[in-house]
């Protein structure tokens, strides 16, 4: 019977977790996160860092394992973390807990990353993320619980990775997990049935939440247009965001192209602006930075 507040499981540093079925032993390093569905720990398997998710509710583990297996079917770069092991562990007074182990992604949530590195990162990040979403949609599933915390930028590769697959839902089904602010139902702009535009709505809110003027959790009004208007740093993207919020993109690729077009336009604008020496740091494409760098390089060589 699940009557506890959260299905979290407390493990200690250095605690050994030995799987009942596959007999692998993991050593707990630290807690990474705790949520409504369980706890995630950083753990060591021999010398390898892995992420271990454990829950009092075994159906949480089964469901997420199913989702991770489904994501594996995507060719090329993996969509979610790689699934490494699924097992049970007996703890304390003979209580059995289900857990699964996945690749540890040493990453920074997209919102933190953008705060540190600048809004121009939204362009390459969006390109990557929307391609990944498109692949997922091609498998007939949506991500569901899309929010900045679930989009990690890998520290080493600088690639965007989706984590936390608890919301992955087949098309036509009711969304399994979502977070209020990123849910179109909350804003009264659509239902909670899984279709690609549900993810694109959530991503549009993610974009809005990156604007330093926006504190999405403190928004009292449910009028999304007001939120758009206050996101002044993202002005060039307003049209795209509005489009996504009103479900006018059918596929992730359409949204990706639209953002790319904004990027190209920004590039041209800022180029002319630089030459006129009234360069305004509003929203810069990565291309711009590259151009500036090349300009500087050229200057030094010369």
């Amino acid at each position: 019977m699940t009557s506890s507040i959260h299905p979290t499981v407390r493990l200690n540093k250095y605690q050994k977790i030995r799987g009942k079925w596959n007999k692998r032993t993991y050593t707990i390093v630290r807690l990474i996160g705790e949520g409504a569905r369980g706890s995630i720990y950083l753990a060591l398997l021999s010398q390898q860092y892995v992420a271990l998710k454990i829950s009092q509710d075994s159906s949480v583990v089964s469901a997420e394992v199913n989702a991770l297996k489904m994501l594996k079917k995507v060719q090329g770069q993996s969509l979610g973390p790689l699934l490494l092991d699924v097992d049970d562990v007996v703890l304390g007074h003979q209580t059995v807990y289900a857990f699964y182990v996945m690749e540890y992604i040493d990453g920074v949530p997209l919102n933190t990353w953008v705060k540190q590195e600048g809004l121009q990162w939204l362009f390459p990040a969006s390109q990557q993320l929307l391609s990944q979403l498109h692949q997922l949609h091609n498998l007939g599933h949506i991500f569901g619980d899309l929010k900045p915390e679930n989009i990690l930028v890998d520290r080493k590769s600088k690639q965007v990775r989706l984590v936390d697959v608890g919301g992955v839902t087949p098309f036509g089904r009711s969304i399994r997990e979502y977070t209020t602010w990123y849910d179109r139902g909350y804003w009264k702009l659509g239902d909670r049935r899984a279709e690609p535009s549900y993810d694109l709505f959530a991503y549009a809110v993610c974009l809005l939440s990156m604007d330093p003027h926006i504190k999405i959790q403190q928004m009292k009004s449910k009028d999304i247009e007001k939120v758009i208007q206050s996101a002044t740093s993202l002005k060039p993207l307003h049209a795209v965001i509005r489009h996504a919020l009103h479900g006018e993109f059918d596929t992730a690729v359409e949204m990706k192209h639209a953002i790319e077009q904004v990027n190209q336009k920004q590039l041209k604008v800022s180029q002319t602006k630089t030459s006129k020496s009234n360069f305004k740091m509003e929203l810069m494409g990565v291309g711009t930075i590259v151009t500036i760098h090349f300009a500087l390089l050229y200057y030094f060589i010369w």
């Binding site: 079925w21 075994s58 159906s59 583990v61 089964s62 469901a63 394992v65 199913n66 297996k69 699924v86 097992d87 049970d88 059995v96 289900a98 699964y100 089904r173 009711s174």
Partner: peptide, 22 residues
């Protein structure tokens, strides 16, 4: 119990549970 099954087979049970739930 569901946990008496090997994790592999549990995934199938979970799918049935989810289908029914929906």
């Amino acid at each position: 119990d569901e946990t008496d099954l090997p994790p592999e087979e549990r995934g199938e049970v979970q799918r049935v549970v989810e289908d029914l739930g929906e």
